[in-house]
Write a protein that binds this DNA or RNA. Sequence first.
DNA 1: CTGAAAGCGCTTACAG
DNA 2: CTGAAAGCGCTTACAG
Lengths: 345, 345
Amino acid sequence: MAQKVKLSTIAEELGVSTATVSLALRDSPLVADITRDRIKTAARELGYIYNRRAASLRTSRSGIVGVCVHDVMNPFFGEILKYVEHELDRRRQTFILSNHYDDLSKQRAFVDTLLQLGADGLILSPAIGTPAEDIRLAEGNDLPTVLIARTIEGSGVCGFRGDDAFGMALAVDHLIAEGHREIAMVGGTPLTSTGRDRAAGWRSALRKAGIEPKPEWRIEGPRSRDTGFEAGQSFAQMNNRPSAVVCFSDMVALGFMYGLARSGLTPGVDVAVVGYDDIAEAKIAMPSLTTVSNGQAEVGHRAAGALLDRLAGNPASDETVLIKPVLKVRDSSHFAGELRKRIEA
Amino acid sequence: MAQKVKLSTIAEELGVSTATVSLALRDSPLVADITRDRIKTAARELGYIYNRRAASLRTSRSGIVGVCVHDVMNPFFGEILKYVEHELDRRRQTFILSNHYDDLSKQRAFVDTLLQLGADGLILSPAIGTPAEDIRLAEGNDLPTVLIARTIEGSGVCGFRGDDAFGMALAVDHLIAEGHREIAMVGGTPLTSTGRDRAAGWRSALRKAGIEPKPEWRIEGPRSRDTGFEAGQSFAQMNNRPSAVVCFSDMVALGFMYGLARSGLTPGVDVAVVGYDDIAEAKIAMPSLTTVSNGQAEVGHRAAGALLDRLAGNPASDETVLIKPVLKVRDSSHFAGELRKRIEA
DNA sequence: CTGAAAGCGCTTACAG
DNA sequence: CTGAAAGCGCTTACAG
C-alpha cells in the first residue's frame, strides 16, 4: 500500500497546520466553515484513517468499554449484551467482549488487557470467587466498573440484577397454587449470589406455605442445557419423585424437559417445570415454559447507562439495583395443575 | 489514584535508562539477569501497567484481532468462536467481537474501528451484500482478513467453510434411503453462499434420485429458531405435506420441531426432520436431531491459524478451504423410516 | 551490557 | 480564525 495518510499529510496538501486539521475533523467551531469543508473533502479523498492509538495516548480516553461475562453463548447473557451493545453503539463506544467461563485467571487477564489499552470502563458479571479486591484494583487504576447479574459484597461499585429470591418465590408460590406440595429445585451453585438467592427464595417460599423442603429436593449443580438434560434423566428415576421442579434457569429447564421426555415422561404433565430468565426460546418450547422474567433488557440498558453516566463525569454510585421479576405462566406448569384438579373432582 | 507509573518512573527509581527498562520487561537477552530481575521486581511493586497504546503507536502492532459474525448468540457461530478464542488466547492476542446482524453499515463501522485501532487482523463472516471491494479495502489498509462460514467471489482472501452442497446432499440421500420421496427444504436465503449452496445440494440430490422438487417444497426464509417455529406451524397445515424436511440449520430444525409439536404432530414420526451444523443441542433434543456436522471446530481453529500465520509474515493464500461435512443419524429422521417399513411390510 | 535521543500521530494550551 | 510547539509513553537504532 501507498504511504500512510496522517493529519500532517492533509495539512501539507492544503497548506494549513495539523492543529487546524485536527480541529476541523472533529467539527470544532473554532475552524471556519470553508476551511473545515476543504479539510474534510481532502481527508476523504486521501483515504485518511484516524489513528485512535495516537489520539488516545494524548487524551487518555480510548472509547473502549470492556464487557466480561460467563459465556456469551448462554442466551441469558446474550440477551443482556444485545441491550448493552445497543446502548454503547449509540454512544459510539467500541466494546470488547470476553468470556471468563468462571475462570478467575481468564477474567484477570482480560481486565489487565483493558488497563493496558486504557479502556474507559468495564461491565462485568464476575467469575465465581472474584474478590472485592479485584474490583477495587480496576477502579483504582481508573477503570470504572459496573456489575451485572451477579454482585460482590464490599466491591463498592454499582450493580444491576434481578431480585432472585423474590423471583424464585413467585415460581414456588405459583406451583403451590397449582396444587403441588413437593417441589424440587434443580441447578445452580451456592458459589454465586444468583445461586444462593434463588435457592433461598425457593426454600423460604416453601416454608411460608408450611412445607419443609426435603434435602433430596435440592439438586445442586446444573447451570446449562446439557447438565439440565442429565438432571432430567436422573430425576425420572428418582424414588418419591416430587411432582414439580423449579429450575435455576431456562437453559436448565429446557434441558431438563428434554431429559424427562427422553426418559419417557411428559414434561408439563408428569412433572410440572418452571424455568428462570424468560429467554426467547421459553415461549416456543414444547411445552411452552413457565418462567420468571428476569429483566435482561433493563439490566443491559441500565448497566450501560450507568457506566456511560460515570464516563460523562457524574458521581459514582455503589448501589445494587434489584429489578423486579415477573412470573410468566405457560403450559409447562399449568397442564399438570389442570389434570390434578380434574382427578380430584 | 496516585501518580501514574510508567517506564520512566521505574527507570528513575533504579537509576537506569528507560531503554533498559523496556528491554528488561520484555525479557531481552541484551539485559543482564540481575538488572532484569531488579527491574521486574520494581515494576511489580510499583504497580506498573504497560501502556499498549504507546507501544502500538511506536511499533504499529496492536495485538488486536477483530472478529465479526452475524450473531454470536447463534450457537453455530458461538461454537466456531470458542475455537477461535482458544487459538487467539494461546497466542496472547486480544480479540474484539462484533455482531453485524447482516447490516452492512454496522459491519463497515466495525472494520473502521479496527483500522483506527490499528488491529492486526480480521476474521469475518461477511454480512449479506458485502462487496469484494470492502475486503480489498481492509487488506489495502494493512488489515489481513480471513473469511469464515461464508465466502465472497473475488475477495482474494482465504476462507474456511463447510462444503454446503455436499453436506445437504448427504442429508437428502439419507432421507431417500429411509424411504422418503417428498422432501422439502426449510430456511435459508439465496443472498448468502451458504443458502445458495445448501439449496443447490438439496435440489441436485433429489434430481439425482429421479425426483423433481416441487416449487412448494422450497420454503425460503427461516434462519432462526423463532422463524423455524413459525415455519413448522405452517408446514403442519400444508396440503400434500411432504413426509420429510431438511432444514437450513439446526436452529431452524429445532424451532421447526417445536412448531410441529405445537400443531399436534410428532416430529420424527409424522414428519422426518434433518438439521444442519450439529450444534451441541442436537444430540439432546426430543427427538434427537439428525444433522450434518459442519466442522465448527475445524473452521475456528484453521481460520485463526491462517490469520496468525499471516501475522507471522507468511505469504497470504486466497484459497477457500471446504471442510467435509459428516452426517449424524439420530431419531428425528429414523423413527419415521422404521414405521414406514413396518407399514409397507 | 547500558544510555541518549528521535519519533510513532495525535491534541492542547498558548500566542497571534 | 489559524499556527508553532510541547508532550502522551513507549521502542529502536545507534553509540559507547
